[in-house]
Design a protein around this nucleic acid. Structure first.
Length: 443
DNA sequence: TCTGGGGTCCTAGGACCC
DNA sequence: TCTGGGGTCCTAGGACCC
């Protein structure tokens, strides 16, 4: 049996931890750049505010109702998430962290599963302050559905109170639940697939479970077939204990204000390149290719999107090299006259440091774009540790985007770095930054 | 005016090999 | 006039997830 633990309204719950006055007030957390609503307290959900709703469309409604709005604060959420995961791991080490607010864990060897989960839930609440819900089923897909039953109690009405825990007990109960679960609410069935299934009159999880296996394999592929099997109790997605190495790393942000100037794109991209390379080294990886993309808003009449990729002869972890190539790609991509809303960098063809395939050509040609490998590694390590100790961005790559002449140009245009992401309602990093640690007064 | 960011996997089709 | 059979690898695009 597999349990799925899910933190309730996770980002909102994190914001409430250090600002207890918000506990019974409506709260909403925004996406990056304060664009959309991505976490809502129960009060906000019941106002009819949808997940992913753009802020500007509902701002008045939120203000009128006295909703407290937060920008997202990922260093806070990431840290709280780790604490929750560690508490689970203490009681159950067959654990897979599935997302920032979810974990699957194995209950096969536990006798009273509901009691075990009940105690775990209380412990997490007591030690971190985060409320959680736990669903238990034979497979990951079923535990997801069990978890949904806890949260949408009013849709299923099989019990008055779950205490945050629900285990699918018998076949009859399972079928009842599946009949009352819409096809689009199954894990693995998204917008496109649910349109397809609705068209052929498969509207709920029960009829989806009983679909012809050959038909589904042929029409929708192996992934969807696995989802059907999982609903039948056949495990297709086991709990993954080891986190697989990443296959790509992407850093991109929407701008606070639209951008026209090449230099402004450059000054954003250099920061993203540095962030991406830093992440690369944190995972002990090197990259074999980089992709840069730029785009205008999807809602803009003159929509523009393009991306270009450069492949290295030899995988690298050096920020300088990554930036040189990123800048080169940006130059090729930039077209004057568009209102750019976003730029980004993707590192791909990743491999472990120690598995980098050394190129004969790099040595033979004494390639100007390659650095001495040993020196480069030491330098990057030094930069990373300086930045970790003294704060992000303290040591940076020199570039035109940081130059005096560029700053002068911005000055004459009376501009600052207007592209910086909006984050107008951000809470302090209570648990990850020394100066933000909450102070306690004792009388 | 204002609409997020970061991932994974599968599949079909093209290019190439003998 | 008539042109096989069996593979691999790569990539773009599409689907999904949180």
């Amino acid at each position: 049996m597999i349990a799925l633990l899910d933190c309730n309204n996770f980002y909102v719950s994190c914001e409430r931890l250090f600002k207890t006055s918000l506990n019974d007030k409506p709260v909403a957390v925004l996406s990056n750049n304060d664009g959309c609503i991505i976490s809502r307290s129960e009060e906000v959900k019941s106002m009819g505010i949808k997940m992913g709703e753009p802020l500007f469309k509902v701002k008045k409604k939120l203000n009128d109702a006295g909703v407290y709005i937060c920008s997202s604060n990922y260093s806070l959420y990431g840290d709280i998430s780790n604490r929750v995961m560690e508490i689970i791991r203490k009681d159950c080490d067959i654990l897979e962290k599935y997302s920032i607010d979810e974990a699957f864990f194995d209950l096969s060897n536990i006798k009273n599963k509901e009691l075990f989960c009940f105690n775990l839930k209380n412990k997490i609440l007591k030690w971190t302050g985060i409320p959680v819900s736990i669903g238990i089923g034979k497979t990951k897909t079923l535990s997801k559905i069990a978890n949904r039953v806890v949260k949408k109690n009013n849709e299923y009405k099989i019990r008055l109170n779950f205490n945050g825990i629900y285990e699918i007990n018998c076949e009859d109960e399972l079928n009842y639940i599946l009949r009352n679960t819409s096809v689009e609410d199954i894990w693995g069935i998204g917008r496109r697939l649910s349109v397809f299934f609705r068209k052929i009159n498969i509207n709920d999880a029960f009829s989806f479970k009983n679909i012809n296996l050959k038909f589904i394999r042929q029409k929708k592929g192996i992934v969807t077939q696995k989802t059907v099997l999982e609903l039948r109790g056949v495990e297709c997605y086991p709990i993954e204990l080891e986190q697989a190495d990443r296959k790509s790393i992407c850093v991109s942000r929407s701008f606070g204000e639209k951008i026209y100037l090449y230099e402004e794109l450059q000054s954003a991209l250099i920061i993203y390149s540095e962030k991406a390379s830093q992440k690369l080294r944190k995972y002990r990886l090197s990259c074999g290719a980089i992709t840069v993309f730029i785009q205008t808003s999807r809602y803009d009449e003159k929509y523009y999107f393009d991306s270009k990729t450069f492949t290295f002869i030899e995988q690298t972890l050096d920020s300088r090299l990554i930036w040189i190539k990123a800048n080169y790609l940006l130059k090729k991509l930039y077209v004057k006259g568009f209102r750019y809303s976003k730029v980004g960098i993707i590192l791909s063809k990743l491999c472990r440091h120690e598995k980098v395939q050394i190129s004969l050509l790099n040595y033979a040609l004494n390639n100007e774009n390659s650095y001495d490998d040993k020196e480069s590694k030491v330098l990057m390590k030094t930069i990373d540790s300086l930045n970790e100790r003294f704060g992000e961005g303290k040591v940076r790559i020199a570039s035109g985007a940081n130059s005096f002449s560029y700053k002068k140009k911005l000055n004459t245009l009376k501009k600052k770095n207007n592209w910086l992401m909006r984050s107008n309602y951000c809470s302090p990093c209570y648990t990850t930054r020394w100066c933000d640690i909450p102070k306690v007064k004792i009388k």
